[in-house]
Simulated assay, not measured.
Amino acid sequence: MKKYIIAASFCVTLSAVFLSSCKDSSGKTNAAITEIVSKIEQNKYKIGDKIDIPISDLEGITKVIVAVDEQEVPANFTIDGKTIGLGNHTVNLKFFKGEEETNSRDFTFVVYANEPAAQWSYEIVGSYPHNPDYFTQGFYYKNGNIFEGTGLRQGKTRLIEYKLGATEPTRLYQIKDDVFGEGITEFDGFIYQLTWQDRVVYKYDLNFNQVQKFEMPSQIIEGWGITKIGDELAITEGSQRIHFFDKDLKYLRTVQAFDSVQPYSYLNEIEYHDGLIYANVYLKSGHADNSNIVVIDPKTGAVKAEFNMAELKAKQGNPQAQEFNGIAFKENGNMLVTGKLWDKIFEIKIKK
């Protein structure tokens, strides 16, 4: 899908590189501050843990001001899962002697979920033809029909509706702009379609009339996947972050996908089902293994489970087929999955 790999925005452990302003002459104090920072940076925190910035042993220091993600917090603060949730967090410490700032440090710490991701399995219970010309980027199911958004430029970015099992569209809109289409979702009687690096989001009525064009919100690095969750739109950008917006694309919040061991980056096409986000992984750990779906709690970002679906690409028949991409759910709870230029859609039953 992507011509360029976004550098992973996560940092599980950070080398001891500190942006420092050391105005005092006490090498002992500098060393003590560095030791405090190193311990915080190297720890694997969980929700509910406390972080303390002690100053009693710091020579000449009377006060420390702490900011996490640019928000001031107490010098002894708790990772509450709300203001400070899972993932990477930037910290700025300012040390004072009276009213004079004598030292500062900038660094990062990481918060992990309490449990590792469970390994779920599945059973293939059916398959349907899929048009191998469709470079699948967005994908959802409704009343026996598939709604699909395709990518690539030069007229390949389209919005398509077809009966599940058909290869010809019952409705099609070809975007006139030279853009690279991405994920789609339906929300409040309208369809939203992302673009990759074009900084545009399209909005359609259900007759595929384009009714609005949004500028991509600044919080999003690139447009990858989108789904509706209650009265929010959840959008992936190819990192471990999922950003949430209202129907007018006003920013609401962000979660990061982590379990107790690692972050889950390269989140791509997503679908919401039964309280959880199901996300295609475009690449795994920077390698060309994109055969996984991860299951994420939308409230916290905690990764609850993952599937390995490496066998599916080999079961479709188009030799030009590319990455696994496309998740939808039928009324019976079975999942429909496909990929870019695949000639099949597979129906699978999830086994937890």
Rank of each mutant, 00 (worst) to 15 (best):
G165D: 11
T167I: 15
T167Q: 13
E168K: 15
E168H: 12
P169R: 11
P169E: 13
T170R: 13
T170H: 12
T170W: 12
T170K: 15
L172K: 09
L172P: 09
L172F: 04
L172D: 15
Y173N: 06
Y173D: 04
I175G: 02
I175E: 15
I175V: 14
K176E: 15
D177I: 10
V179N: 09
F180R: 06
F180Q: 03
F180N: 09
G181R: 04
G181P: 14
E182P: 05
E182Q: 08
G183D: 08
G183Y: 02
G183N: 11
I184H: 08
T185E: 05
T185S: 10
T185G: 03
E186R: 06
E186K: 01
E186W: 03
E186V: 06
F187Q: 03
F187K: 05
F187H: 10
D188V: 08
F190L: 12
F190N: 13
F190C: 14
I191M: 11
I191R: 02
I191T: 12
Y192I: 04
Y192C: 01
L194K: 00
L194P: 06
T195A: 08
Q197A: 13
Q197V: 14
Q197G: 15
Q197R: 12
R199H: 15
V200Y: 05
V200P: 08
Y202L: 01
Y202K: 00
Y202S: 00
K203T: 01
K203N: 04
K203G: 01
Y204K: 07
Y204E: 05
D205Q: 03
D205P: 03
N207T: 14
N207M: 12
F208I: 03
N209Y: 06
Q210F: 00
V211A: 08
V211G: 13
V211P: 09
Q212F: 15
Q212T: 14
K213P: 10
K213F: 09
K213L: 02
K213I: 05
F214P: 05
E215V: 11
E215Y: 06
M216H: 10
S218T: 13
S218H: 14
S218G: 12
Q219K: 11
Q219H: 11
I220A: 08
I220M: 11
I220L: 15
I220K: 07
G223P: 09
G223Q: 07
G223W: 01
W224G: 02
W224I: 01
G225C: 03
G225D: 03
I226Y: 05
T227V: 07
K228E: 09
K228G: 02
I229G: 07
I229H: 10
G230L: 06
G230H: 07
G230R: 07
G230N: 04
D231K: 10
E232S: 15
L233T: 06
A234S: 10
E237K: 01
E237I: 04
E237W: 00
S239R: 09
Q240M: 13
Q240T: 09
R241A: 06
I242T: 10
H243R: 02
H243T: 04
F244A: 03
F244L: 04
F244M: 02
F245C: 00
F245W: 07
F245Y: 11
D246K: 02
D246I: 00
K247P: 03
K247Y: 07
D248P: 06
